[in-house]
Amino acid sequence: MALTFRHLFRSFITTQYPEKRLSTSRRIRGQQFVWRSDLCTGCATCAKSCPHGIIQITTSTNGDNRYVVDNIEFDTGRCMFCGLCVEACPYNALYMGRSYEQARYSRKLLWADMETLMDPANQVSAYGHPELEWRIPRQSLLVYGQISQEMVDEEND
């Protein structure tokens, strides 16, 4: 009973979510995908690597013998965000997003079509792309807070 009494005077560990947000991991596999049309060659490796087969990609050949992606769609309602498609992409054209507020009222709204995938407002996560990591704010841990730069430097020297 003394233990609970002592805990009465410790500070809370939860945060009030909508007002206060912790920054997520740099590598978070968030609930959206970011696709870059300029890098994609339409090889469909992502579609092959998906365990659920939720990636639909339609391509056609143009004059100079290259694939053109006509349509690419993700059924994020069935996605389990394993990140295998992002790892599989050989041309770095596919990224996970950092958003985690993708709740929708209807399952149909979870279909991510081409416009959604190319939306400039999407935030790119560094999952599978370690070269992006320095650009993304550092993760704040719930209990420890931020791991300070000094500690990191001390450790890695």
Binding site: R26, R27, I28, R29, Y127, Q139, L142, V143
Partner: peptide, 14 residues
Amino acid sequence: REKILDLFEMVCGQ
């Protein structure tokens, strides 16, 4: 457990 989950999130994003 939250501390451990934070560590995992840092490493693998989930």
